[in-house]
Nucleic acid binder design. Structure first.
Length: 571
RNA sequence: UGGGGAGUAGCCAAGCGGUAAGGCAGCGGACUUUGGAUCCGCCAUCCGAAGGUUCGAAUCCUUCCUCCCCAGCCA
């Protein structure tokens, strides 16, 4: 997994400076001289899964703001729940952030702050603001009340400071079993804000932590750890997603009670994309239940999956900059992501010719043993990428899709009696169609016009179509993996009663093609390298490749006007 | 239902009292040795609804409607 080190993707990140309400707030604070003009953010993932494109939006915001205003952005792992967290995730997250093109200032872990957090808890107990509660999880829930009814105070709410101190110490010492007691903040059981109804600060968990080992038997809850961690690092703008708006009063409460640096929380909308699931929990399910091969399966919206599929960091950043940041629930169409992907790949990917579904073509009037080297442009968008030579010979492969025995209206490609251009080759005219006993087309016999070498037409004659090809004797065999949406529904979460999102899985999200033919220049193509197969799409060399065994991923297809016309004709 | 958020085109999204930016998608056309790329044009008399204030309202006020989040010892 993650074996694309060859592509650090760390181009310098320019700040786009596109306006959004959080950026506006930062500018306001700067104008007001807040924090002496200091801007500091943080990206705080929990290491319980791989990062996906939704995280990329947050990363671009957090790091982008810091970069734009000369501030700092830390990477902080929110590792307060050892039951879900692993170092594998920590490592992948660091890889992904770097690959996206960002470098953190400080690298921290919430677990670094366990001692300080503990000390503050003791301080709150002494101040009568926290107490040890012996209620079970179930009892706590029943005491919490409902949306419309106030909660009930815990019978343990008014223990003496001494008793609380003693009990908390013994919790810490590991004297009590999991779930038997908690430390709770003493706030207000009748608050209309549920998170203020004496929230749990610490729970007992006899569990190995990925960093602190068996040092702790009590672990702080998110609400008790997050704001203080921000505060310790002197984060000025703590940016998170909308669902945490409910937690903001509590975030502020701890900071105020403790009288520590007042980090301020801002919430923005999380990213949704059609036909895509962006939830670590669900992505974990896909991996664990084997619906995909791994976290970096190219069909996954994880950054590692997208990277393996051939996405560039630049394309993802441009996408994030363009969808902007607001507070509305939204679902961006997949086509928007693909647009920015193609836009970037168009500029950087070398053009090559590759035939996915080969159809043999014999040029009857071409000399038996002649091989000509044809000049081809590597990238019409970038002259600096130069040219290369492609061998042309008597027997070629063309795409099966580029031939129709009985061409529909508007089909401009090859058909009996018709002339087309072989890109950088010659103009050829189709003669005989050879079939087997079942009527399957085996090969085509064509004739070429020697005056059209390189695909030129000295007589000014026009052909309606130019198609790609590969010389049969020189072609390199390879496997090509075509990907389609992982889900068949725009909203994969929309399911019938009794089903779960896996019911919307697309059974043909992966199509493996073998016996594909690519031009010889690709023989030694390194893993991760990206190409445009002319007229087909963008492809990259997959990590499953090995010497003598080339595997390509289709990153995304080219815009396909013909298929649109054809679809329209069918309706 | 108590609390917290949000409603501008098919999808994102600017706009902050002076008469609806931009992008994606779509449609038309030009160009083309990729049906690619590029270029040009079209695409909201209207901003969830209804009232009101104002010379003037997407922007201010009132009421209503819809959607999202919160009742983990998850984050």
């Amino acid at each position: 997994m993650n074996s694309l080190e060859s592509d650090p993707g760390a181009e310098p990140v320019e700040s786009h400076g596109r306006s959004n309400f959080i950026r506006d707030a930062v500018i306001e604070d700067l104008k007001a001289g807040k924090h002496d003009g200091r801007v500091q953010t943080r990206f705080p993932p929990e290491p319980n899964g791989y990062l996906h494109i939704g995280h990329a939006k947050a990363i671009c915001l957090d790091f982008g703001l810091a970069a734009e205003f000369g501030g700092k952005c830390n990477l902080r792992f929110d590792d307060t729940n050892p039951s879900k967290e692993e170092t594998e995730y920590v490592d992948s997250i660091m890889d992904d952030v770097r690959w996206l093109g960002f470098q953190w200032d400080g690298l921290f872990y919430a677990s670094d702050y366990f001692p300080q957090l503990h000390e503050w808890a003791v301080q709150l107990i002494k101040a009568g603001k926290a107490y040890v509660c012996d209620l079970t999880a179930d009892e706590v829930r029943r005491h919490r009340g409902t949306l419309t009814e106030p909660g009930l105070e815990s019978p343990y709410r008014n223990r003496s400071v001494e008793e609380n101190l003693d009990l908390f110490q013994r919790m810490k010492n590991g004297e009590f079993p999991d779930g038997s007691r908690t430390l709770r903040a003493k706030i207000d059981m009748s608050s209309p804000i549920l998170s203020m109804r004496d929230p749990v600060m610490y729970r007992i968990l006899h569990m190995e932590h990925h960093r602190t080992g068996d040092q702790w038997r009590i672990y702080p809850m998110y609400d008790y750890a997050h704001g203080q961690s921000d505060s310790i690092e002197k984060v000025t703008h703590s940016i998170c997603t909308l669902e945490f708006e409910n937690n903001r009063p509590l975030y502020n409460w701890f900071i105020e009670q403790l009288g520590i640096f007042p980090s301020r929380q801002f919430e923005f909308d999380r990213l949704n994309i059609t036909y895509t699931l962006l939830s670590k929990r669900r992505l974990l399910t896909l991996v664990q239940e084997g619906h995909v091969k791994s976290w970096d399966d190219p069909r996954m919206p994880t950054l590692s999956g997208m990277r393996r599929r051939g996405y560039t960091a630049e394309a993802i950043r441009t996408f994030c900059a363009n969808i902007s940041v607001s507070k509305t629930n939204n679902t961006v169409q997949l086509s928007a992501l693909e647009y920015f992907l193609r836009e970037d790949l168009n500029k950087r990917a070398a053009r090559v010719m590759g035939v996915l579904r080969p159809l043999r073509v014999v040029i009857d009037n071409y000399p038996e043993d002649l091989v000509e080297e044809m000049d081809a442009v590597n990238n019409p968008e970038d002259e600096n990428m130069g040219t290369r030579l492609i061998p042309f010979s008597k027997v070629l492969y063309i795409e099966r899709d580029d031939f129709r025995e009985d061409p529909p209206k508007q089909f401009f490609r090859l058909s009996p009696g018709r002339e087309v251009r072989l890109r950088y080759g010659y103009l050829i005219t189709c003669g005989a169609v050879v079939k087997d006993d079942n009527g399957n087309i085996l090969e085509l016999h064509c004739t070429y016009d020697p005056a059209t070498r390189g695909g030129k037409t000295p007589d000014g004659r026009k052909v309606k179509s130019t198609i790609h090809w590969v010389s049969a004797a020189h072609a390199v065999d390879c496997e090509v993996r075509l990907y389609d949406n992982l889900f068949t529904k725009e909203n994969p979460n929309e399911v019938e009663e009794g089903q779960d999102f896996t019911a919307n899985l697309n059974p043909s999200s992966l199509e493996v093609l073998s016996g594909c033919k690519v031009e010889p220049s690709l023989r030694e193509a390194p893993i991760g390298s990206r190409y445009q197969f002319e007229r087909i799409g963008y492809f990259c060399v997959d990590t499953d490749s090995a010497p003598g065994r080339l595997v390509f991923n289709r990153t995304v297809g080219l815009r396909d006007t013909w298929s649109k016309i054809e679809q329209r004709g069918k309706k």
